[in-house]
Each structure stands twice: as C-alpha cells, then as structure tokens.
C-alpha cells in the first residue's frame, strides 16, 4: 500500500500529464469523426457570441467587397428572372408557385471559416430558432459550401466541403454521368470527383454540378470545372480533378437550403436495403 502511494506521489506530474493528454486526444479523435457528436465545438452561446462580435468588427474592413458581390448576385438573379418571365404565359408571376417549390432558403453569414486543416468547419449566425437542422445543404452565390452539422438556438456549425469526411453526389453537366465528390486535404481550390465509369465522356473545362441523387442540394447547383482526368484502379474508373468555382477561403453571405421532401426521399431510398 505504502509503495502504491509512494509511486503515485513520485510520478504525480507524469500521471497528471498522461491523464490530461488522454482527455485532449479523445476530444481530437471525436472531432475527426463525422458520425460522433463532438464535445468541444464552436456553437456554444459564449463562443458563438464572441465569434460573431469578432465578425462584426472585421465586417467594416470588407464592406466594399461585400457590396460588389451582392450586387453581382442581384444582377445574375435578375437575369434568371427575366429568363423565366419569358417562358411564362400571360401575366402570371413565379411567386404564385412558392408552394410547389420543395426548397426553403435561409440567408446567413459566415462568422468563422477554416480551410487549412484536414477537417474544416464553418460557423454561421443562424440556428434552430430560424429553423436550421442537421443535414441541410449550404451554398453561396458561386457554388456549394457544405452541409449543416449541429446547431443551438442562435448558431450552427457547417461541415465544409473541405472536410475529409464529406462525400457528395455530383454530375457532369449535360451528361448523366455521376460520381462522388471528395476533398484530398491539400488545396482549398481543388476537389476530386471519384468513381466515374471509364466509358464516361470527360473533357477539360466541363462543368460539374450537383447530381439529382443528392437529397441535400437541389440539382444543377454549380460546383466547378474539370481540370484534369486520370484513369485509376487499373483503368476501370476516372478520377477527375475539379477546380471549384467557389473561393472557399473567402466566404461571407451564404444560403442554407431546406429540402421539404428530404425525409420522404430517404425513407423510400432505404426501403430496398431493409428488406
């Protein structure tokens, strides 16, 4: 007994170090695992509040840039509106069809963004009070941004597409070729489209868009353009390098998309596997 106490007293610093280290490493492993809820995260009341104060301060330095981006987006939306207006009959407006559109869109602002780690997260300034739930798609004006992960009343955390855990359904525009979009963990401007069949027709400069199989995003949202394509796995599949349209290092105004039919689609999808 005496020896045990002596041992504990002699090595108390080492034991304390190992104890604290085990806690810290456990938290780290949790944070790298997409499916487990993490203990340490940036959506807490105090943390979120401080981060949004910080954003408020830095906003002033970037106002010109924000205005430019928003007015560009306005212009492109106006163009699209005119396009739709042309194809509508008579004097009906698109607004009468809001019930038939299965998506709700929530505007939000980024208060924290990361891109140099291998698992990156974004914190945004809307939460459960505004109707944000886990697993909703997030886009910006020029392309996709990520998927919501967890939220409290006022803030939400988004899994950035620059995260090794994420894999999204994507498609080459103009064809029905699909693949899964992943990030290799190096360059925040480049992702790769994997599992594309060998017979697919791929050209440099082709546009990559979200696929119809995705329940998170509406189809036809822009992602990026083909930069390079290589045959892998003994030439049976393509691995396509995609240069993102979105600048993931400079995000501010983003939109969260809620798919009304997401649950229904997922239920139908899992029917086959359960039987």
């Amino acid at each position: 007994m005496q020896q045990i106490f002596n041992f504990l007293i002699k090595y108390r610093n080492l034991l304390l170090y190992l104890f604290l280290m085990v806690i810290a490493v456990t938290f780290t492993i949790q944070s790298h695992d997409y499916h487990r809820s993490t203990t340490i995260h940036s959506t807490g009341k105090i943390t979120g509040g401080i981060l949004s104060t910080r954003n408020g301060v830095y906003d002033y330095f970037d106002l010109i840039n924000h205005n430019k981006k928003l007015s560009e987006e306005n212009a492109s939306l106006r163009m699209r509106l005119l396009e739709i207006g042309d194809t509508l009959l008579g004097k009906e407006t698109t607004l009468t069809f809001t019930d038939s559109i299965p998506y709700n869109i929530f505007p939000a602002r980024v208060i924290k963004n990361d891109f140099y780690k291998s698992d990156n997260y974004i914190t945004i300034d809307i939460g459960a009070n505004q109707g944000i739930q886990p697993d909703m798609g997030v886009i910006s004006t020029s392309g996709i941004v990520g998927v919501t992960d967890r939220s409290n009343e006022k803030f939400s955390r988004v899994i950035s597409i620059l995260n090794s855990q994420i894999s999204l359904n994507a498609q080459i525009k103009g064809t029905s070729t699909i693949g899964s979009l992943k990030w290799d963990g190096y360059d925040p401007y480049v992702m790769s489209l994997e599992d594309v069949p060998r017979l697919a027709q791929v050209k440099k400069g082709d546009t990559i868009i979200t696929g119809k199989q995705s329940t998170l995003f509406p189809s036809d949202i822009l992602i990026g353009e083909v930069q390079d394509a290589q045959l892998v796995e003994n030439g049976s599949r393509y691995k396509i390098t995609v240069r993102l349209f979105n600048d993931m290092t400079d995000l501010d105004h983003i939109y969260v998309i809620k798919n009304r039919d997401q649950k229904a689609i997922q239920e139908i999808d899992t029917l086959g596997t359960n039987e």
Binding site: V25, T28, S31, I40, K112
Partner: peptide, 15 residues
Amino acid sequence: DTFQDTGGAHAAACV
C-alpha cells in the same frame, strides 16, 4: 479549441 473547432489539439499541445 472551442473557438477553432480543433477538438483537443490545442489542449494536447499546451499540456
């Protein structure tokens, strides 16, 4: 760690 979403990496390095 809570501010940067790094899990426990800062804590481990500091300890």
